[in-house]
């Protein structure tokens, strides 16, 4: 299998032109072809959500999408969250509320939460819990992740 296809998509506002096999996952393309290793792979079968990125604003499991399916789309990853040294309110809140330990699931949670809060800034607590229950974390027990996202939501609404 070395029939490759050209794919162009935007990641964090920047154009990428890559040449990939049709079977290459978006996650592998981001990590290996674009060098963006902030997107992590936890299960590669769509359960853990660690590889969550935003594709045209929607949270997507990058292990379950082929790179060729992202052709022409605009993708956002954890690397695009901060502005220079200034962290995004979600990043600040995860740090302040001890919402991470090993940090491996963190990029996926950040992008999941970002997608949810941008779509629905006034999301109810029940809906927020529901959204956040779609990703796995093995370190924190989730309570500090929930606190962090609630705090960031307040900050983002006020900003």
């Amino acid at each position: 299998m070395n029939n490759t296809m050209p794919v162009r998509f935007k990641v964090n506002g920047k154009d990428y032109d890559i040449q990939v096999e049709p079977r290459r996952s978006l996650a592998d393309a981001l990590r290996e072809d674009c060098g963006l290793t902030g997107t992590h792979l936890g299960c590669e079968h769509g359960v853990c959500g660690t590889c969550t990125v935003l594709v045209d604003g929607q949270p997507v499991r990058a292990c379950l999408m082929f790179a060729v399916q992202a052709r022409g789309k605009s993708i956002r990853t954890v690397e695009g969250l901060a502005t220079g040294d200034k962290l995004h309110p979600l990043q600040e809140a995860f740090w302040a509320h001890h919402g991470l330990q090993c940090g491996f699931c963190t990029p996926g949670f950040l992008m999941l939460a970002l997608g949810a809060l941008e779509a629905e800034p006034d999301i109810s607590d029940e809906d927020l819990r529901h959204v956040l229950s779609s990703n796995l974390c093995r370190c924190t027990g989730y309570q500090n992740i929930l606190k962090a996202v609630r705090a960031a939501a307040r900050e983002m609404r006020g900003a």
């Binding site: 290793t37 740090w95 940090g103």
Partner: peptide, 16 residues
């Protein structure tokens, strides 16, 4: 924590 900045910005360096 002092370890968090690289981890929340996607600059961690894990095995893979």
């Amino acid at each position: 924590r002092i370890e968090d900045r690289p981890l929340v910005t996607g600059r961690g360096r894990y095995a893979a």
